[in-house]
């Protein structure tokens, strides 16, 4: 069984839950940007939640299935077509040998996850099939999916017609809200800038990818004056190069915040004002350029409550598909 890629879409990559354990060498965990959507798609077709699937951004691919199989598509809303006929999203469906899966225009979110029963079975690198294009790891020979690729699929026995209840399909709001725990080098900016960051409405910039999302539209930050420490460099936004957490928010030059995501650089020389909490990382993966975003300040207790709430959403999805 295989998927024969006819059209790759804009940027379609093989992703799973990533390769933890190598961030100290600059190799990020990677994997699906919207992990809840990946887990749900895999559950729908009877796979392990961490099986490899396709992540397509803004535009869907077009492919032929070489054997009878079961598929499911979750994440952003994009009409699915099976030999041109519409199929429901967030619902497993059967495809016959030779049938073509294609997609209409994205109407909501940014990324879809296409799971196939048995999971994509390309070669794993450092324990994962996730595509990390910068380091040429995973994926198809270290790269994104291209026309003509034949993606091997493992053994699976999915059941068609299973669906994730509408209420459990989590989406960004309007404006999208990202909860942030201030910290790291938060003390480097003035109180007025600390307030402004949470008051202002930001927009996702065009530079938004798997490494990080840039935002613009809010006021630039003012720094607390200091003599720059030895080794940091002369700009007030510079620090002695250190590690960057996933979700951390750096503001190079004090102008446009960047939130690091799954393919994060592991460190560098820009100060950070805190980090987006783990519960909201998936949402970032569903933001399109130009959508309005607000950052909301939370404390650690609220961050952990949000994490538990997200875990229970996942548990409800598991229960609904049990």
């Amino acid at each position: 069984m295989a998927l024969e890629i006819r059209k790759p879409g804009l940027l379609t990559t093989i992703q799973d839950l990533g390769r933890p354990g190598y961030f100290h060498l600059g190799i990020p965990v990677g994997g699906a940007m919207d992990r809840l959507a990946l887990r749900a798609a895999n559950r729908l077709v009877g796979n392990d939640e961490g099986a490899a699937a396709l992540e397509a951004v803004f535009m869907g691919p077009e492919f032929t299935v070489t054997e009878d199989t079961v598929l499911a598509v979750t994440g952003g809303e994009m009409p699915i077509k099976l030999d041109g006929e519409p199929v429901q999203t967030w619902t497993s469906f059967a495809a016959k040998k030779g049938q073509v899966v294609s997609f209409g225009y994205l109407s909501e979110g940014a990324r879809i996850y296409i799971a196939v029963a048995g999971g994509i079975a390309t070669e794993a690198k450092l324990g994962s099939r996730a595509t990390y294009a910068i380091g040429a790891l995973g994926g198809v020979d270290g790269r994104a999916v291209a026309a003509g690729d034949v993606l091997p699929v493992g053994e699976g026995d999915g059941i068609a017609g299973r669906t994730v209840p509408e209420a459990l399909r989590r989406r960004p709001g309007q404006p999208a809200e990202l909860r942030v725990l201030p910290g790291l080098y938060w003390h480097r900016i003035t109180e007025a800038s600390q307030k402004a960051f949470f008051e202002d409405e930001w927009k996702v910039a065009p530079e938004a990818d798997r490494m990080g999302y840039r935002f613009r539209g809010g006021r630039p930050v003012d720094f607390v004056e200091r003599e720059q420490p030895f080794g940091a460099g002369s700009d007030p936004s510079n620090i002695v190069d250190g590690c960057y957490p996933y979700g951390s928010i750096q503001v190079p030059g004090g102008t446009e915040p960047i939130v690091l995501h799954r393919d994060a650089v592991s460190g560098g020389g820009y100060f950070m004002i805190g980090a987006v909490i783990s519960a909201d990382m998936d949402l970032i993966g569903q933001l399109q350029p130009n959508v309005p975003v607000r950052f909301r300040q939370v404390d650690m207790d609220q961050a952990l409550d949000a994490r538990r709430a997200r875990q229970s959403t996942l548990d409800e999805i598991r229960a609904a598909l049990a």
């Binding site: 910290g183 420490p229 030895f230 080794g231 961050a303």
Partner: peptide, 14 residues
């Protein structure tokens, strides 16, 4: 650093 990381700055300068 969010709810999943702790950042330890041993010194501000190198």
């Amino acid at each position: 650093g969010g709810d999943e990381h702790i950042f330890v700055e041993v010194d501000e300068e190198m």
